[in-house]
Design a protein around this nucleic acid. Structure first.
Lengths: 191, 191
DNA sequence: TCCTGGATGTAGCGAACGCTACACTGAACG
DNA sequence: CGTTCAGTGTAGCGTTCGCTACATCCAGGA
């Protein structure tokens, strides 16, 4: 059974996905959740603990949704599929929150820096697995992941600035470029 | 002559480049600048005005440094040169601050969203001009800019997570991929 | 029945925040 | 000399913040 803490963690995560992490204040959050700040601090040691829990919950959801991605026909489609996965449905907001957390971690702020570091490893290996499914070697998959993931992050940073069509165009360009560089079928990249 | 306001704007920008925007509080900032919060609010209408000024100052510095970029031999080198420009010297911190501001704008927070929107146009056209100098058509330059800029943003988001060597490798991969997609002249394999 | 211990509510502390009221200085100007 | 005004300092307002002290409630075991 889901403990009260888990319920609150999930609800708080939903709230954070909507409103972001930065202005997050215990009292408005608690009110939106139908409880009190007192209860949040009872179930979570302090605000940082709550934030870390939210980020870890978000990360679990993201990586979980990765596993539901079907194998793609080739590398080009793998890139396109991944973009669609991270920009549709609830996953979109998870990515946005992750980008926000990563930006907070840029200046070493805790608990963001640690939480981002923790979730990044899982995410990267999940994405790499997705690319390995089209025949890339582990090394090549890692390289593709690094480039593609960074580009996607950057595109999501610019999401309020560009139209969706412009972004789709950029993703197609990236998919073409990546396919041209790493080939559709197995090509072990040099280390 | 530089007015007192300009002096404060520059000093505040330096401080923000160091400490980030998010926790930025008037009193510690003023103390670091040898003045008082009262004075900051005298020279700048309110905190948002100060923040907008900081962001616009940062943007001017970034775009200005773009203009000093010499023309590259080919598209591949144009990508590599741009990476070096945005990751060395004081420019690195400007990028980091821009990424932070863009992340804040992700959730529509003001004045970040507006300021980022304002500076993005200048930045993108500057980068596109850099790519046009290696013979790309305006349309192609715009597409390359979109992809490369997004990737660089993403890489900078991950800067605390990856080693510099790993990031350089990703940039070389991106340069190869972009050169393969849009053709430059010279495109060789990995170094 | 009493006791225990997790869960919850009320109230408030101390600190930091953005911002403002107000008095003062000193140089410029007629 | 008197006025003016940009610039500065002091003090504090009102609010919100994370967090805590403390009382209460309620279900389950002895």
């Amino acid at each position: 059974m889901a403990t009260r803490r888990d319920e609150l963690a999930n609800a708080a995560t939903d709230y954070a996905l909507e409103h972001g992490l930065i202005g997050l204040s215990l009292r408005p959050l608690a009110e939106a959740l139908g409880t009190s700040d007192r209860m949040l601090l009872y179930h979570f040691r302090d605000k940082d603990d709550l934030l870390a829990t939210i980020l870890s919950t978000t990360s679990e959801r993201s990586v979980g949704s990765l596993r539901e991605l079907p194998a793609a026909r080739d590398l080009r489609h793998a890139v396109l599929d991944l973009w669609r996965a991270v920009t549709t449905g609830p996953q979109q907001r998870c990515q946005r929150l992750y980008v926000e957390a990563a930006a907070l971690g840029l200046f070493g702020r805790e608990p963001y820096a640690t939480a981002v570091r923790a979730s990044n490893a899982d995410w990267v290996s999940g994405v790499a697995a997705h690319f390995r499914r089209v025949g890339l070697s582990p090394a090549a998959a890692r390289q593709v992941t690094l480039v593609v993931d960074a580009t996607f992050m950057g595109l999501q940073l610019d999401q309020p600035l560009d139209s969706a069509a412009v972004q789709r165009r950029a993703v197609r360009d990236l998919a073409d470029a990546v396919a041209a560089r790493w080939g559709g079928r197995d090509q072990s990249g040099s280390a």
